[in-house]
Design a protein around this nucleic acid. Structure first.
Length: 259
DNA sequence: ATTGTGGCCTGCCCGC
DNA sequence: TGCGGGCAGGCCACAA
């Protein structure tokens, strides 16, 4: 999906949709409704109300309805948010096409505008009252101590642990590869085996990576990104990058400086 | 409980 | 041009 940086962009975009009365709900795809919701239930919850707050936790966008439930939106890998026809982000792995069939959910406002979710692959979804607390602390707000605590005692690969949304929410495949490449730590290392020095380095690089890539415009703007392909070379030292599957995801790392 | 695997669903790109 | 295979920034259910 869009990782947390993209969802944060969506969140800011969604602020333009606040305080506008919803007069129309488009939920054409039952598959896209999660948590047992049906089109009727969503219509009943949303119609006639207004969004009053746009929040984010990890990759989950939360839109609070006045005197109503919270609408949660997940974007899967290819979901895009649009408000009044303007897309929030161009996703690297998502088509630039705007096929009307890809609209999986939308609400129309009394002033004629609309908030729309497009998702070609249908891996995202919309849910009423999502369980926010199941998600771990947002990666943009994690303290060094919290980071240390969520790694300690784990023998899962570091990368898998960092992407475990129940422990820390927000990091996806690209951000995690970039982060570990910057921090100079092997993604396959057991999470609990990092030294205090390495945890400190990891945290500093997390803060910096989110800041820099956020500034540049998204998860795909990392220094490693251009080399994330078969045969790609490390931008730091020129070594051929390792391509492995870690935590179920394609992982690129430098065999020289990531130890 | 933790960790690993497969599957979901669809579009695109590459090579033949 | 057509077709099959592989791949994709996420998440969930399930198995060991």
């Amino acid at each position: 999906m869009p990782e947390m940086l993209e969802v944060e962009t969506y969140r800011r975009l969604a602020e333009a949709a606040l305080h506008r009365t919803i007069v129309e709900v488009d939920a054409p795809d039952p598959w896209f409704l999660k948590g047992g919701a049906t089109a009727d239930v969503v219509v009943g919850a949303v119609l006639g109300r207004r969004f009053v707050e746009a929040r984010r936790r990890g990759k989950l966008l939360l839109l609070d309805l006045a005197d109503g439930p919270t609408l949660g939106i997940r974007f899967g890998m290819t979901g895009v948010l649009e408000v009044d026809g303007a897309p929030g982000e161009e996703l690297v792995y998502s088509s630039r096409r705007r096929d009307p069939a890809w609209v999986r959910f939308g609400v129309g406002f009394s002033d004629g505008g609309a908030l729309v979710v497009r998702d070609a692959r249908r891996l995202g979804g919309v849910e009423l009252e999502p369980d926010e607390e199941r998600l771990g602390v947002d990666a943009a707000a994690v303290s060094r101590r919290q980071l240390s605590d969520l790694l300690v005692g784990s023998r899962a690969p570091l990368k898998a642990r960092l992407m475990d949304q129940d422990r820390m929410a927000g990091l996806g495949n690209l951000l995690t590869d970039e982060l570990l490449w910057r921090a100079g730590i092997d993604p396959a290392r057991p999470a609990g085996e990092l030294s205090p020095t390495e945890v400190r380095r990891l945290h500093a690089n997390l803060v910096r990576t989110l800041a820099v890539l956020g500034e540049r415009g998204g998860s795909h703007t990392g220094d490693l990104q251009a080399s994330r392909e078969r045969g790609g070379r490390c931008p730091k030292d020129g070594a051929e990058l390792l391509r492995r599957t870690i935590g179920g995801r394609t992982t690129y790392s430098c065999p020289l400086h990531q130890r």
